[in-house]
Design a protein around this nucleic acid. Structure first.
Lengths: 338, 338
DNA sequence: TTGAAAGCGCTAACAA
DNA sequence: TTGTTAGCGCTTTCAA
């Protein structure tokens, strides 16, 4: 395995010259560069990342924090799409991406301490579920660069990127109105969760914008299973003046919603329209396929990683937030013959 | 940020003594150890991983290779469960887990070369889809430790861990027979895929073991979408002597199978029983919920990582293969009133 | 435009 | 049981 010294000797130059070429230092004559590059290729030389890291005092890695126990985040297909986006950007910059489970404890220390103090990584990306006061405090204590994906529910201003859930809620209403629905209900998980709250706010924005009146009893909240969706929709259907459309913030719950409607002998989309959030994994598989508010989660990852690198390059830059646009994917569940 | 030198000075010992304590070298008196450990704690000392890596000539990381473009593997919930298992073991050993997309090219080199020659990682875990001749060749060229998860379709003997798909196929038949089904069909993706082939072989084993005769026309092959399942089951239903049960190797296809049966006015599980492979993401959400051949994918990750560490510790050890048992999760789709 | 040499923080062979 | 010292392979300052 060739080292920088071998290259230097073989090329008849000093190691500093080789180093400058590795680092694309412009103060090198074209001919020297050519000569050395050729030797590097001949010797199959690749700089030793450990030595580089030590000398540079940076590990050339960034870390994606996960909470492996948390089914809602880790065991979620979106998560991996985000990871894919992050990974793309990280390797473009010639760094490695480390995955670290925040549950892990190493030698009685939090993995955060271990990574930061051990100089294993230059920056950290956290899902909002991990943007806890404790973690934030620890990161700030070390003035360590980090970015959150998903809007964090934190009193401190943070750097984060999220999809525009509020816009998504509004688009859902707009779409339904355009399809001729007027009595639009809303089913979500707990609105204490920020993304549910934002989707809800967007729903209300949408109603207002379309001259429709918001009704408390049309906005159901809580739950995340198919059974929950079934029950919640059941309640809505039992109203005297039942809704003619429903927006559901969870694709799994949506299946329950759909079932409740069909069980009641009503037809989707004719009697009732459904818009679900989050296309994957099941909206397409439902019968009929569900119209969704879809989201570019890959882009979420890309932008998160970019924000982190900006922060690493310029630690004093201002706090930043980015929202990524959502988009309606119209399918059968709202294709009402007008 | 305290270094080993700071600790040494503060404790009135040499750096080698501190180093020995870090590395739990037994040749240190108890009192010295106590003294130094206390100083380490006081100074908040954590060994610099980059320096350690350089000095030890190992990066203290292992890599999980992914193919981010390959929806079938990367964008698959199982994958992340496997990752979780791997991650657990890796951090127990105080190493980091790197994620590397094999699609990535860095400075015109394959990421494999970049990782290996750059000494960024000590070992690699590959999904079987990435155990290509090219990758294997490159890894072997460097005598680099690697383990595959999922049985690879490779002429070379490799170290791998997989779930016991063949056993799963057999269990599916056993279960159906126990529920009183006799005319058992089999629907899978292409049997050129090893896992489908193994499930198929298990199916045949199961038939034989239960004294049933294998019929070509009961074994459909190819496809992976809901629509494929619908079509393939349609064909089976049109047979004069249609099956009274079906094993489907893909949970998404299973939804199509279910739909075909219901469309034909037949009932599940009364007229026809269904066993699907792979519980997540949809088998539970189907109506009725599907009996599945379920698999401990977390364990798959754990065992894969363990195998890798064995290999790293002992590079000359024999090739090894491990199969993890499968298990029937009985649900409504096979609960036939006998 | 290039080279000599010190240093990044740790480990380990050797000596005591 | 502990200390001295020479690296590990790279970067970078300073001098030429």
């Amino acid at each position: 395995m060739a080292s920088i010294k071998d290259v230097a000797i073989a090329a008849g130059v000093s190691t500093s010259t080789v180093s400058r070429i590795i680092n694309e230092n412009p103060a090198i004559s074209a001919e020297t560069r050519e000569k050395v590059l050729k030797v590097m290729k001949d010797l199959d030389y690749v700089p030793n990342s450990m030595a580089r890291a030590l000398s540079n005092q940076r590990a050339f890695t960034v870390t994606l924090a996960i909470n492996a126990e948390d089914v809602k985040s880790f065991n979620n297909p979106f998560f991996y799409e985000v990871m894919h986006g992050i990974e793309k950007v990280v390797y473009q910059k010639d760094l490695c991406l480390i995955i670290a489970n925040m549950q892990t404890v190493i030698k009685k220390e939090s993995i955060l301490t271990w990574l930061i103090n051990g100089k294993r990584t230059q920056g950290i990306i956290l899902p909002s579920s991990l943007a806890t006061e404790k973690n934030i405090k620890e990161l700030n204590k070390h003035h360590f660069p980090f970015v959150v994906f998903g809007e964090p529910d934190s009193p401190d201003p943070l750097n984060w990127v999220d999809v525009n859930n509020r816009q998504g809620g509004q688009q859902a209403v707009d779409h339904l109105v355009k399809q001729g629905y007027r009595r639009i209900a809303f089913i979500s998980g707990s609105r204490k969760e920020l993304f549910n709250k934002n989707r809800f706010l967007g729903y209300r924005d949408g109603l207002e914008r379309n001259g429709l009146t918001f009704r408390e009893d049309f906005a159901a909240e809580g739950g995340n299973t198919k059974a929950d969706g079934l029950a919640m929709m059941g309640t809505l259907l039992s109203l005297d003046d039942r809704p003619d459309a429903v927006i559901c913030t969870d694709s799994i719950m949506s299946l329950g919603v759909l079932k409740a409607i069909q069980k009641a002998g009503l037809s989707v989309p004719h009697d009732i329209g459904i818009v679900s959030f989050d296309n994957y994994p099941v909206a397409d598989l439902a019968d009929p396929p569900l119209t969704t508010v879809d989201v570019d989660v890959y882009e979420l990852g890309v932008q998160t990683a970019n924000m982190l690198f900006k922060l690493i390059d310029n630690p004093l830059s201002r706090q930043q937030q980015t929202l990524i646009a959502t988009e309606i994917q119209a399918k059968e569940s709202t294709m009402r013959a007008k």
